[in-house]
C-alpha cells in the first residue's frame, strides 16, 4: 500500500506540473463559446444544449488527456529509464502500474472536477434549471475515463508503439459506444457463427452504450440497480485491463 501511495503521489505531482491544467483552460473557452452559441440558437432548449455541450466537452477533453497521458505513462519512463530506479527498489511491478494509473486518473479527475464545477456554476448563474443528477452524469463520465485509461495503459504495453496504442484506444472508444448496435447487428445477422463473433467482440469492447448516463439524462432518473451494476462494471473492466497490463509488464525487461 505504501509503495502504491508513493508512486501515486509522484505521478499526480508530475501531471499537475505538466499538462492537465491546459485542458481546463481549453474547456473554459469551449464552454463560453458553447454558452454563446446555445443562447443564440437553441431557443427553448438553451439549458439542455448548454448542459449537454458542457458535459460532452468535459468528457472529450478528459478523454484526450487520459489517452495521451496513459499511453505515454510507462513508455516514457522506460524511454527515459526512470523506471530502472523505481523497479530496482522493493516495488511490485503491478503496484507500480496501479500507482501510476491511479495518479493519472486522479490528475484527470481533478481537471474534470474543476471543469464540472465551473460548468455547473455557470448553469446556476444563468438561472437555467438542471433537472437530474449532475453528479451522476459526471461520475459516469469519470468511470468511462477510468476505463479508457486502463485500456490505453494495457494497449500501450501490449503494442509498444504509442501511435498504435492511441489509435486502438480511439477505436475502442467508438466501438464501446456501438456495443448496443453490434448486439442488434448480431441478432439480425442470421448467421450463428458471425452473430457469436460480433457478440463476443461487443463484450470485449467496453460497453459505453449502456453506460452513458450523460446521453440518457433527459430520459429521467435511472434505475438504482443500473447505477450499481455500472459501478461494478467500471471497476471490473478497469481491473481486467490493469491485470492484463501487469501480466505484459511482468514479462518486460529493461
Amino acid at each position: 500500500m505504501g509503495t502504491i501511495k508513493a508512486v501515486f503521489d509522484y505521478t499526480l505531482r508530475e501531471h499537475l506540473r505538466h499538462k492537465v491544467w491546459l485542458g481546463c483552460a481549453l474547456f473554459g473557452l469551449v464552454m463560453v463559446a458553447s454558452a454563446l452559441l446555445a443562447s443564440a440558437l437553441a431557443r427553448d432548449e438553451r439549458a439542455r444544449v448548454m448542459l449537454d455541450l458542457g458535459l460532452a466537452a468535459n468528457e472529450a477533453i478528459a478523454l484526450v488527456s487520459v489517452v495521451f497521458l496513459t499511453v505515454h505513462l510507462i513508455l516514457q519512463e522506460v524511454e527515459s529509464r526512470a523506471v530502472f530506479l523505481i523497479l530496482t527498489h522493493p516495488v511490485k511491478r503491478s503496484n507500480y502500474l496501479l500507482g501510476r494509473f491511479l495518479g493519472t486518473l486522479a490528475a484527470v479527475g481533478l481537471g474534470m472536477g474543476a471543469m464540472g464545477l465551473a460548468h455547473w456554476a455557470l448553469l446556476r448563474l444563468l438561472g437555467w434549471p438542471v433537472e437530474g443528477s449532475y453528479l451522476l452524469a459526471w461520475s459516469c463520465s469519470l468511470a468511462k475515463i477510468a476505463i479508457m485509461g486502463a485500456l490505453s495503459l494495457f494497449l500501450s504495453l501490449a503494442l509498444t508503439s504509442e501511435a498504435a496504442a492511441m489509435s486502438f484506444s480511439v477505436f475502442f472508444w467508438m466501438l464501446g459506444h456501438f456495443s448496443a448496435e453490434m448486439r442488434f447487428l448480431a441478432q439480425k445477422s442470421g448467421n450463428a457463427l458471425l452473430g457469436a463473433a460480433i457478440t463476443a467482440f461487443s463484450h470485449a469492447a467496453p460497453d459505453f452504450a449502456h453506460f452513458n448516463y450523460r446521453d440518457a439524462w433527459h430520459a429521467g432518473v435511472p434505475d438504482p440497480g443500473w447505477a450499481l451494476a455500472a459501478a461494478v462494471y467500471a471497476l471490473a473492466y478497469c481491473g481486467a485491463c490493469l491485470a492484463l497490463a501487469a501480466q505484459v509488464f511482468d514479462q518486460k525487461e529493461f
Binding site: S179, D207, H210, W226, V232, A236, Y237, A246
Partner: peptide, 20 residues
C-alpha cells in the same frame, strides 16, 4: 486476476445493459 475481473465485468455488464 484478469479472468476473474473479466467474468465480473461480463456479469455486471449484462445486469447494466438489461436496466439501461
Amino acid at each position: 486476476a484478469a479472468a476473474a475481473f473479466a467474468a465480473a465485468a461480463l456479469a455486471s455488464g449484462a445486469a447494466m445493459s438489461a436496466r439501461a
